[in-house]
Write a protein that binds this DNA or RNA. Structure first.
Length: 886
RNA sequence: GGUCGCUUAGCUCAGUUGGUUAGAGCACUGCAUUCACAUUGCAGGGGUCGGUGGUUCGAGUCCACCAGCGACCACCA
């Protein structure tokens, strides 16, 4: 493009779609193509990033945009470094989330009971359609964000390859006895008519009443509860074995009539877990409706189990004729009334308690005993003398089998602790769900030909069970109706996605994973569990955990608040590059960050700035390819500084310090390059250096700002995307001498400008000044100084002047005849002198302290001494100037 | 109740292993339309780094305790 044809402002819409299409067509998103086309060496190191598959429940939000920015920056950086880089995209069928969303939609459009009205296949068809549409939307959005992922490897958690992986894994665990079907209490969502795992519960605080009562007048112990209605299913009272109040009662059984179907048979048991200091020191045990109480029964199998709440959320016939069929709340009221009327209620207290609610269906979850499928996390894995829990621990601590190379690195570190703590409290994982959208459990049953209808517990002696990857041969087999927890399939994601030939060998373990902290237990833990168990390797090397993106006021983005923002809209308004920049600026791992339109404006302005720098480079420099020779101090400075910036940026990106990389590049671009080097270039005109620095800068920015950098790259006549240009190396050395000297030059210019501002000197008026230098020759930079400070440097002049002491080797006198106010100038110098003296004093004190000079490293002492000398020299000069003015 | 995090300029936040006089963006004040850019530039004001102790020659950075805020976990019935 001809320089004069480049528009004054960058228009993202002009470029983004076009560029993405070009990238995609180039094939460079695919690591294999990169090798074929020679941009990556075949034996280059592999680098893999696996996209956490977004749920096909609708559209992506800004949080996804942030994740994609993190991943794409990383992918582009490694691709440019020459790594065989795979960034693998995908989508998640998100079992319960998607089904509940579609059911809600159907209800909203007038259907009362979607499951009954449509039937299994009918509802699944609706969900499938919804999921497919959603998947298409998501793909479009990911493209719009500029993500350089390999679409040819796109994976879906519910496609054929993944079904095969899930079934294979299920069978392996089943055969190893790690998956079992058992009758245990589970979390049951009445609204969703399905189980949910412990991790899917959202605990909410709410007021409750704590009732203290006796089962009967002659019952020796009072117990407390917030769920009186469940007490109809009590089978024991647990006390601490050493509690003198109750010790003698342990072992006795009481028959009490409370109105249940049968009199309750309550056995007094001793259990160490009971806190004798809390309440009455005794716990009414309801094994059927409390996880804790069920656990107590595991330790005391002799006590009974009576279910008084059914899967419909209503009281069962076991609860007795007065309660059966009533809701738990109605039953609670009735039972409390009964207690009150019979004078059994001893105390009522208002307390707040935490109740588990279903995060998808929103209702309070009941604990109910049922036969379900579980993964045994504490059981020894055949032949490995370890449990799944052990493997999960090893993977983040010692490394698998003590091999430090087989260790997952979690950033920030503190999540290790949180994760380990979670493992300690982990129970067997209930994996069966009664919803329909999901991987069907690969277990088939065959009823005996005899007329035995017992399909529930205990009848298995009569029923043949088959577990396999595919349905068994023969007639009469019926598949288990349940589906699997969605995290079962997500847990396989690091390897189930690598099903193409050699992909597993090349790209597993995944090099870099990122995820929000809210998903660590669900997902990270399950991936570690599945992979370490099935493949005896870790699923990924590094996992970067980010915080939640919040709105301007620190609130979470949510549908109910109506503060959701579509990243596509933002991208359209401000540009995708600006969005990526805004999302990655000022973030630190594990901490939440805020999004605001102010940030978007800043970022957009910055992107436009780069665009205009490119216009300057295009219009003001000749297109020759001069050899790169620094001709001046500013040349040496900018090249040296560039080397530092390359080093720092590389280090930051390697260590996933995205914000620091941005800050480094931003400061260099705006401050060093645009405000200083380019302004000086207008005088010195060393085009080769200008073009070299800018070209390098474009490559450094490319991972963050892929669109604008490639757009500029095209206007410069390059047809190959920066995506496959090499990451800048260290062709120049860091030049500290030049940096120091240039720093002095800068200070001088700034001071002169400061003078102009202080004395309100007309900006167009040129000043006159003399320069005194020692030990360093600034003369080559005189034209630059003259331009930047709007001053004419002369050898001498008469009259009043301002004295500027920059350092012990650079000072200046600036003629201020006619504008200077002697008193003001004296005050200004006096202030400067006071500051210098104060500083020198503090340094002297430090150096006078023998413990400092003795113990601090020599370099620090030497540095301090040098600074003191400089400060003293400066103060002396200031004193001289002050006296000459008076 | 347990665990973890946060507290730095008016606002939002950086500050990588303790080492020159603590930084950025936005906001604010003054000046400027000088031909890459007003989606701009120049200059400037503004912080005893939540509090109290401690370790150290040296602490925003490490330790202890305290306060406020937030998150997560949890079987106080």
């Amino acid at each position: 493009m001809k320089p004069q044809d480049i528009p004054k402002a960058y228009d993202p819409q002009e470029w983004e779609t076009k560029l993405y299409q070009k990238w995609e067509e180039s094939g460079f998103f695919n690591p294999d193509t990169c090798i074929e086309k020679g941009v990556t060496k075949a034996d280059a190191e592999a680098f893999s990033i696996l996209m956490p598959p977004p749920n096909v429940t609708g559209v992506l939000h800004l949080g996804h945009a942030m994740e994609n920015s993190i991943m794409d920056v990383t992918a582009r950086y490694h691709r440019m470094r020459g790594d065989r880089t795979l960034f693998l995209p995908g989508a998640d069928h998100a079992a319960v989330a998607t089904q509940s969303r579609v059911e809600k939609n159907l209800v909203a459009s007038g259907m009362m009971h979607p499951r009954q009205e449509l039937g299994r296949e009918g509802l699944l068809e609706k969900i499938r359609t919804f999921a497919d549409e959603s998947k298409d939307t998501i793909k479009k959005q990911i493209r719009a964000m500029g993500s350089s992922c390999d679409w040819s490897r796109f994976a879906y958690t519910f496609d054929d390859a993944r079904v095969l992986a899930v079934n294979t894994m299920f069978k392996k665990m089943y055969d190893d006895g790690l998956i079992y079907k058992g009758y245990r209490v589970v979390n049951w969502s009445v609204a969703g008519q399905s189980t949910c795992s412990d991790d899917e519960l959202e605990h909410i605080e709410r007021p409750a009443t704590l009732y203290t009562f006796r089962y009967a007048k002659d019952f020796p112990i009072a117990v407390a509860t917030t769920r009186p209605e469940t007490k109809l299913g009590d089978t024991a009272v647990a006390v601490h074995p050493d509690d003198p109040r109750y010790r003698d009662l342990i072992g006795q059984t009481f028959e009490v009539e409370v109105g249940a179907a049968k009199p309750l048979s309550i056995k007094i048991i001793g259990d160490e877990e009971v806190d004798p200091t809390f309440g009455t020191g005794a716990v009414g045990v309801t094994p059927a409706h409390s996880q804790t109480d069920f656990d107590i029964r595991q330790r005391h199998p002799e006590i009974g189990l009576v279910a008084v709440i059914g899967i419909d959320g209503a009281m069962t016939t076991e609860a007795g004729p007065a309660y059966a069929g009533f809701s738990v709340l109605e039953a609670r009221e009735k039972f409390v009334t009964y207690l009150r009327e019979n004078d059994l209620l001893e105390k009522e207290e208002d307390i707040t308690q935490n109740v588990g609610t279903s995060d998808r269906f929103g209702d309070v979850v009941e604990v109910i005993p049922m036969e379900q499928w579980f993964v045994a996390v504490n059981k020894e894995i055949p032949g490995r003398r370890k449990s799944l829990k052990d493997l999960m621990r090893e993977a983040v601590t010692t490394g698998l089998d003590g091999d430090p190379k087989q260790r997952v690195d979690i950033a920030p570190e503190r999540f290790e602790k949180i994760y380990l703590h979670w493992i300690d409290h982990l129970r067997d994982w209930c994996i069966s769900r009664q919803i329909w959208w999901g991987h069907r459990i690969p277990v088939w049953y065959k009823k005996p030909t005899t007329d035995n209808e017992q399909l529930t517990t205990g009848g298995e002696g009569e029923i043949e069970i088959y577990c396999g990857v595919k349905a068994p041969e023969g007639e009469g087999w019926e598949q288990d109706p349940d589906t699997l927890d969605t995290w079962f399939s997500s847990g396989l994601w690091t390897f189930s996605t690598l099903n193409r030939e050699d992909d597993f060998a090349n790209f597993h373990p995944i090099s870099f994973m990122q995820m929000g902290y809210e998903i660590v237990f669900f997902w990270m833990a399950r991936m570690i569990l599945m992979t370490t168990y099935a493949l005896d390797t870790i699923p990924f090397k590094t996992v970067y955990i980010h915080g939640i993106l919040r709105d301007k006021d620190g609130r979470k983005f949510s549908k109910s608040l109506g503060n959701g923002i579509d990243p596509i809209d933002i991208g359209r308004e401000y540009g995708t590059d600006a969005l990526r920049l805004a999302l990655l600026s000022d973030i630190t791992p594990g901490n939440d960050s805020r999004f605001s339109t102010e940030k978007m404006e800043t970022s957009r302005n910055f992107v436009n700035k780069i665009w205009n720098i490119s216009r300057y480079v295009a219009t003001m420099s000749t297109a020759s390819d001069d050899s790169l020779v620094p001709k001046s101090l500013s040349d040496r400075f900018i090249l040296g500084k560039l080397a530092t910036v390359i080093d720092d940026t590389t280090g930051h990106l390697t260590e996933n310090r995205f914000s620091l990389a941005i800050e480094t590049l931003r400061t260099f671009t705006l401050d060093d390059f645009a405000d200083w080097y380019i302004e000086i270039h207008k005088v010195e005109k060393n085009d080769a250096v200008l073009r070299h620095v800018f070209g390098t800068l474009l490559r450094l920015w490319h991972p963050f700002l892929p669109f604008v950098t490639d757009a500029i790259n095209e206007t410069r006549g390059n047809s190959t995307s920066l995506m496959v240009t090499p990451w800048p190396g260290d062709s120049n050395d860091v030049d500290t001498d030049a940096e120091t000297a240039f720093g002095e030059l800068r200070s001088l210019v700034t001071k002169i400008r400061n003078l102009r501002a202080t004395y309100h000197i007309d900006p167009t008026q040129r000043l006159t000044g003399t320069l005194t230098t020692k030990g360093v020759d600034f003369s080559v930079s005189y034209p630059a100084i003259e331009r930047l400070a709007r001053i004419d440097i002369v050898t001498s002049f008469d009259g009043s002047s301002a004295e500027l002491i920059i350092s012990d080797r650079l000072s200046a006198s600036v003629s201020l005849d006619g504008v200077i106010d002697i008193d003001a100038e004296r005050a200004r110098l006096g202030k400067e002198l006071t500051e210098a003296e104060k500083y020198a004093k503090s340094l002297e004190a430090k150096l006078g302290n023998p413990s400092f000079t003795d113990r601090a490293p020599e370099t620090v002492v030497m540095q301090t001494r040098a600074t003191l000398d400089e400060t003293n020299a400066k103060a002396a000069e200031l004193r001289g100037h002050l006296s000459s003015i008076s």
